[in-house]
Write a protein that binds this DNA or RNA. Sequence first.
DNA 1: TGTATGACAACAA
DNA 2: CTTGTTGCCATAC
Length: 115
Amino acid sequence: MAPPDLEASTLHRFRDVVGRIVRAVPAGRVASYGDVATWAGRPGAARQVGAALRSLSAEDPSFPWHRIINARGGISTYKVGAGELQEALLRREGVEVANGRVDLARYRFRPGGPV
DNA sequence: TGTATGACAACAA
DNA sequence: CTTGTTGCCATAC
């Protein structure tokens, strides 16, 4: 299977593409906002990924927004309490969160991954 | 059309 | 390591 990238030719699809990509990240793995933006064919649009996540999670409570963290492996809290929730959700999937940070070298998801 | 706003990121000090 | 600045770019007004 090809990586969940590209096809974001029309800006209007950005949010949908982000949704697809994030849903493709398996439980127990994480990805950075920048990763998602790049895979969506819009490198540099990391901040918009966050906005898309906010919208998508509001629309679908089961949306796995918690698997997206920042480039340093940290939680980018956007609301009081959300950070702790995200951390709890990640741990529930087996992702180790030490000192408020996740070891990207270990949990970061690579599309196409180990072939 | 123009301006303001951010669940980011890279860099300087 | 922490703090401040600058660049980014889709969205909301």
